[in-house]
């Protein structure tokens, strides 16, 4: 009896060792490359750090960077936060809905055109900011030769070229437009995959049960069936919306953007981190950004997550 119990305990211990060994590579990689940097950033946010001298604790028991951010940084409060909110509220849900609609439309057509069109839709987010900036900067160019200015001038809508990318009243809206245009990212692919995987027999069953049109099909069958992909798409959309700052800088060619009109949080981080080398302050902004994204992702989880 005691013998068997002992061997059983041994068995369990061996299992534990095996489990630890199995997850060890993952744990190691994850902590080295994800957890550690985040922790370091969090710690740096309580210091002054300019990449040359060693970091030293900030004033006010280390909270100086945060106090500064929320009380003294007028540009952050006056422009960056309203801009980021506007950008995120439109580009996040807007891009999400657009991605879903596009994916749903594509799922309705034959395989070959679907593959071609989905590749075309996915291209903008694949090739990245520089390419987008090149295309749209040509279109919105501020001199008489820019395509849109040339058209407007030719038909007498304006009498002098509009500085689309340098004037505060246009830049943010153009950024939003371009971001929506390139919003068919990874979330779009996930939703397309999810749509194609919905069991066709469910639709037939639902029609037998009395649903009548495509709209009801989507509401009652498609969306409940692809909840995981919807959640993934939503989180990707939120993270993307808060994290994409390259477009404003790429379009206007300057950081900070003209009169802070297109300045998003991520640009602000870059401005302080890589232009002014105030790493501690930049880290503090990053932590705030992280908290905002976590908060909004929580909202997405409550909306789309499985409750069990």
């Amino acid at each position: 009896m005691a013998e068997t119990l002992h061997s059983f305990k041994k068995e369990i211990n061996r299992d534990k060792v095996a489990t630890v060994l199995l997850i060890l590579p993952y744990i190691l990689l994850f902590s080295t490359f994800i957890i550690l940097p985040v922790l370091v950033a969090g710690l740096l946010s309580f210091t002054y750090f300019d990449l040359i001298q060693a970091p030293r604790l900030a004033d006010l028991y280390g909270t100086f960077n945060y106090v500064m951010l929320f009380t003294q940084d007028e540009n952050f409060l006056k422009y960056v936060i309203p801009n980021t909110l506007k950008y995120a509220i439109i580009v996040g849900p807007g891009g999400y809905i657009l991605a879903f609609l596009m994916a749903w439309m594509l799922s309705q057509i034959q395989a070959t055109p679907r593959k071609i069109i989905s590749l075309a839709l996915y291209t903008p987010s694949m090739v990245g900011g520089v390419f987008i900036a090149v295309v749209w900067r040509t279109l919105f160019s501020g001199n008489d030769d820019g395509y849109i200015n040339a058209l407007l001038l030719q038909y007498d809508f304006i009498d002098e070229a509009i500085q689309f990318l340098q004037s505060p009243e246009y830049l943010l809206n153009i950024m939003i437009f371009v971001s929506l245009w390139s919003s068919m990212g990874i979330g779009f692919l996930a939703m397309l995959a999810g749509l194609l995987n919905v069991d066709k027999t469910l639709y037939e069953a639902a029609y037998v049960d009395g649903i009548k049109n495509r709209f009801q099909e989507i509401i009652y069958i498609t969306i409940p069936q692809m909840k995981p992909q919807m959640l993934f798409g939503a989180v990707m959309a939120i993270v993307g919306a808060f994290n994409s700052g390259y477009i404003g800088v790429a379009l206007s060619g300057a950081n900070p953007t003209p009169q802070y009109s297109g300045q998003l949080i991520i640009n602000h981080i870059e401005d302080y981190g890589f232009i002014r080398y105030e790493m501690g302050y930049a880290a503090a902004i990053s932590v705030v950004l992280l908290l905002i994204i976590v908060l909004f992702s929580k909202v997405a989880y409550t909306l789309f997550g499985e409750r069990d």
Binding site: K78, Y79, P82, L85, K86, I89
Partner: peptide
């Protein structure tokens, strides 16, 4: 007016 966007949305 800085936050006009929030109100309109």
């Amino acid at each position: 007016y800085n936050e006009v966007f929030i109100l309109s949305s």
